[in-house]
Design a protein around this nucleic acid. Structure first.
Length: 571
RNA sequence: GGGGCACUAGCUCAAUGGAUAGAGUCGCAGACUUCGAAUCUGUCGGUUGGGGGUUCGAAUCCCUCGUGCCUCACCA
């Protein structure tokens, strides 16, 4: 398949002097209005050096490149050179490419030989998985899949919040008010209730806080009973998290959380000391970051114990030494911007050049209509409830419409959960949003079910066409003249753009770019579907159109897969 | 108070410094005897938070003010 941008840049090199291929490629645009062509080249910037009016330049450039047969037409319009690609070759090449590549269409070898780590989800154990956690989980999962598609060697890490004074509190509370049976029956809800009670009681009895700190110290020192309880809480929590991960179809390669690094920190405190970066202040040890325009970072507390910044440094070094990553991505809330700036700077100060390969990918806050979420105050929406409700609603819709599907349970799961995931990935990740049941349970317009419906509809046409006709279309030899109408061509262009879109989403760590593009493909397909009849009498026309349907279906399915979504054949 | 992020149609959001700022949703008007109406078509809707500046050209870059959120030493 021709890379048209590259091809056009090469042609422009023969018409414009003094600019490199890269510079020219960057200048090529896609006009907002397709009536103005498939690609455009603005000539404003050339005016100064060529000492000519932009429209004149456009006219000259257009004349020079118009002869090439990739173009149907090249037209100067004011300061722009508008280029129209010859549709038949474009369409037949693209369709052939997609039907042969199938599920790998959109993938590339950009990242070949490079290792990428994606850290995401990372919930605190013994706390419920609420709607706020969906962001890191789902965004991280999609970034992982995007990088995989770009050819990187990828690894997923769930950096569990399984360490810290909070577990001293938890153990303390369990000993005072807990009982084993309740915990086994409903681990997280029960543990949370102990934790909440602890905070209420500690208000009146500050001795509790000291007791909790002591318990944590014992835990750190490896006391048997404390360790056993902690391990138990951790196992039970992980069991419940796994339930949610299974619903979402999400997996990890490592669950090495904070506790994993508890014995790997001393080295850095020493190293910071040796390199004279540590400074005593009010009994604690800090690193000054004035030159970096950052507030000082607290490394050890006045009682000598460490904080999570030390653990993050230890984790980064461990990962570099163990996995030798080229890129180490952290999908963590924007609230922690300062924290990441600080520790990455410290790693750099320690002389590790790879510090700049550590990337914090922040995202905005989810709040509820009555304010910021707070598990302790009971202001919380559980993710499992959201997923279940979405599945329920899907079942209702399926029943109501009487749609044909072989497995209602499975379809409802794919569509309901897909709706939640898609919603989550449809906006720029940096934006804050307020959780709304209405929005998450909306299945019309720019939503997951809309895209999945489009896919199922394409599948339905193929079923109706029959295996023989489909096989013929999949062979890829088509008479492209039957699929160059505006609506067919618009669809083809969007499918062609999918690989570019995936690369951009990877560069920007922004799954929503894929989400929006998948919507565009679905919209375009539906327009095509309404404007033209696919299953026509004329065999050649039918084959060409079926091939386009297969291409569109494939593109949608592959796009959804990158978001972590299924594409049902029937719904 | 310092730092960061956000602000675009009634609502939710798009828009590599480029042509007339686009979608969805809401409202209104249409399209199922025809490959799936979770669909499609049309219509209504804008001082891109305010004000300066840079540029041939600004929603986009710079300055400033406003509003909201996040964050700033012993939680993570």
């Amino acid at each position: 398949m021709i890379n048209y941008r590259e091809k056009i840049a090469e042609l422009l090199m023969t018409a414009v002097e003094g600019l490199s291929k890269e510079e020219l490629t960057a200048m090529i645009e896609v006009p907002q209005d397709e009536k103005m062509g498939d690609y455009a080249f603005p000539c404003f910037r050339l005016a100064k050096q060529l000492r000519k009016a932009p429209p004149m330049i456009a006219k000259d450039v257009a004349e020079k490149i118009a002869g090439d047969n990739v173009f149907e037409k090249v037209e100067p319009v004011n300061a722009y050179v508008n280029m129209y690609i010859s549709r038949e070759a474009y369409v037949s090449d693209l369709v052939k490419e997609v039907v042969t590549q199938k599920e790998t269409y959109g993938n590339s070898q950009l990242g070949e030989g490079k290792k990428v780590i994606v850290e995401y989800s990372s919930p605190n154990i013994a706390k419920p998985f609420h709607i706020g956690h969906i962001r890191s989980t789902v965004i991280g999962n999609s970034i992982y899949k995007i990088y995989k598609a770009l050819g990187y060697d990828t690894m997923r890490i769930n950096h569990l919040g399984d360490y810290g004074t909070q577990f001293g509190k938890m153990i303390c509370a369990y000993r005072r008010w807990g009982n084993e049976e309740d915990v086994i029956k409903s681990p997280i809800k029960t543990l949370l209730s102990y934790y909440t009670k602890f905070h209420v009681e500690a208000e009146n009895d500050p001795a509790l806080d000291q007791e909790a700190r002591d318990i944590f110290t014992k835990l750190e020192q490896g006391a048997e009973e404390e360790l056993r309880l902690w391990q138990w809480f951790r196992d039970e929590s992980l069991k419940e998290f796994t339930k949610v991960y299974n619903m979402l179809g999400i997996e990890f390669d490592s669950y090495a959380g904070e506790s994993f690094y508890s014995d790997k920190m001393g080295r850095f405190v020493e190293e910071l000391k040796t390199k004279q970066l540590l400074k005593a202040s009010e009994g604690a040890q800090i690193v000054e970051l004035e030159e970096q325009n950052l507030p000082p970072a607290l490394i050890t507390k006045s009682d000598g114990s460490t904080l999570y910044i030390t653990r993050d440094i230890a984790a980064a070094v461990y990962r570099k030494e163990t996995y030798n990553f080229d890129k180490n991505i952290y999908v963590v809330a924007s609230q922690q911007n300062l924290h990441f700036q600080q520790w990455i700077q410290i790693v750099e100060l320690l002389g590790y050049e790879w510090a700049r390969d550590c990337v914090h990918v922040p995202f905005g806050l989810v709040s509820l209509e009555d304010g910021t979420m707070s598990t302790r105050e009971g202001r919380v929406v559980f993710l499992e409830d959201v997923l279940n409700k979405a599945v329920e609603k899907t079942k209702e819709i399926i029943a109501e419409k009487g749609v044909n599907t072989d497995n209602i349970e499975e379809t409802a799961k794919q569509v309901g959960i897909g709706a939640v995931v898609f919603q989550e990935l449809s906006n720029n990740r940096i934006k804050d949003y307020v959780f709304s049941w209405d929005r998450v349970l909306n299945f019309e317009g720019e939503t997951g079910p809309y895209v999945q419906y489009t896919h199922a509809r394409a599948a339905s046409v193929l079923r109706k066409a029959g295996a023989e006709a489909v096989a013929k279309a999949e062979a890829g030899e088509i008479k492209a003249s039957y699929v160059i109408s505006d609506s067919a061509y618009d669809l083809v262009k969007l499918i062609y753009k999918l690989p570019e879109v995936i690369a951009e989403a990877g560069e920007k760590y922004e799954p929503s770019i894929v989400t929006r593009h998948v919507i565009n493909i679905a919209q375009s397909f539906n327009r095509f579907y309404h404007n033209e009849h696919v299953l026509v009498e004329n065999e050649e026309e039918k084959t060409a159109k079926l091939a386009l349907v297969i291409a569109a279906k494939t593109a949608i399915k592959n796009g959804l897969a990158l978001l972590g979504m299924e594409a049902p054949e029937k719904m």
